[in-house]
Nucleic acid binder design. Structure first.
Length: 283
DNA sequence: CATGGTTCCTGCAGGC
DNA sequence: TGCCTGCAGGAACCAT
């Protein structure tokens, strides 16, 4: 599942491969991922345009055009971009093809089709569709104090809060579990009972975990093959809790547990990550 | 308005 | 062998 580090690896690959390239043609093989006013309108909005360097906020990725508009992309669960020769075999689940003016082809591949592409008129700086997304921890203007206070002001629980892309962006289920483990915090810790210090530890841990993952993903990147599930390091990343049910905690040896949470999975060390004591008489 | 539950999608693993 | 169910989850959407 592409989260911030994976999307950033893809962005860097795209930056090297599509910046300055003009789109000569677009082929929509499957309509679903084109979340715009039909494939024809989408194609009309992209063909003849020239890509500037791709940008990112959280898990959103966009390709500014030189005229101020942009093409916005989200990888969803399984989205990938590839650069291929036009005649190369199509990978399974290839959805949209972009013929570039250097003779190569940009391909959007997405098995589950939770991802998608759309136009963003006047969206080169920031697509309107992304305006409600909070800054991510890698943004130079990210304000950790503000994020801490926004989390503590919520009437919710810590994992829900850090997965809320309007509070802090870029974190998905994997990094949420990993950073909560690192910060020794239970996913169901009420945000109203979070000390500022604990909230800070969670956010610092989130950036640390994502930084380490990005470092791994970036090193093995193949410049001709932009793929979040392939050589990006995504699967080689070392995980302390996510998907590690039954394995010993790297800190204390206790077996990692899987809980059902938000119709999803939450992995934690039940010894390192404890809930605060219930307040007597509190409902 | 904030919060939390539901839904969209497909392929694969596991049970019978 | 083959069918069925459950599971993976980002984020828009909807009900409360």
């Amino acid at each position: 599942m592409p989260e911030l580090p994976e999307v950033e690896v893809v962005r860097r690959g795209l930056e090297k491969n599509v910046t300055g390239r003009m789109v000569c043609d677009v082929t929509v093989l499957r309509e679903r991922p084109v979340r715009w006013d039909g494939p024809d309108a989408f194609k009309a909005g992209v063909v003849g345009r020239t890509f500037a360097a791709p940008r990112r906020r959280g898990k959103y990725l966009w390709f500014p055009f030189s005229d101020g508009d942009a093409m916005l992309a989200h990888l969803g669960m399984s989205g990938q971009f590839r650069i291929d020769a036009p005649g190369a075999d199509l990978a399974p689940n290839t959805r949209v093809l972009f013929d570039l003016d250097d003779g190569r082809q940009l391909r959007f591949v997405d098995q589950r089709m939770f991802g998608g592409l759309q136009l963003a008129p006047q969206g080169a700086q920031l697509p309107a569709q992304v305006s409600h997304i909070a800054l991510d921890p890698f943004d130079e203007y990210f304000n950790i104090e503000q994020a801490i206070e926004r989390i503590r002001a919520k009437r919710s629980t810590i994992k829900r809060a850090i997965l809320d892309q309007s509070v802090i962006s870029g974190i998905g289920n994997i990094y949420a579990d990993e950073c909560l483990w690192r910060a020794k915090t239970h996913y169901d810790h009420p945000t109203q009972r979070l000390t500022a210090a604990r909230a800070r530890r969670v956010l610092v841990a989130a950036k640390e975990v994502m930084t380490e993952s990005l470092a791994q993903g970036g090193t093995s990147f193949d410049e001709l093959y932009v793929d979040v599930n392939g050589s990006s390091g995504y699967f080689s990343r070392s995980l302390n809790v996510y998907g590690q049910e039954g394995k010993p905690c790297a800190r204390c040896g206790t077996q990692i547990r899987r809980d059902s949470f938000m119709n999803r999975s939450s992995y934690l060390c039940p010894k390192c990550q404890r809930l605060p004591r219930p307040i007597h008489g509190d409902k």
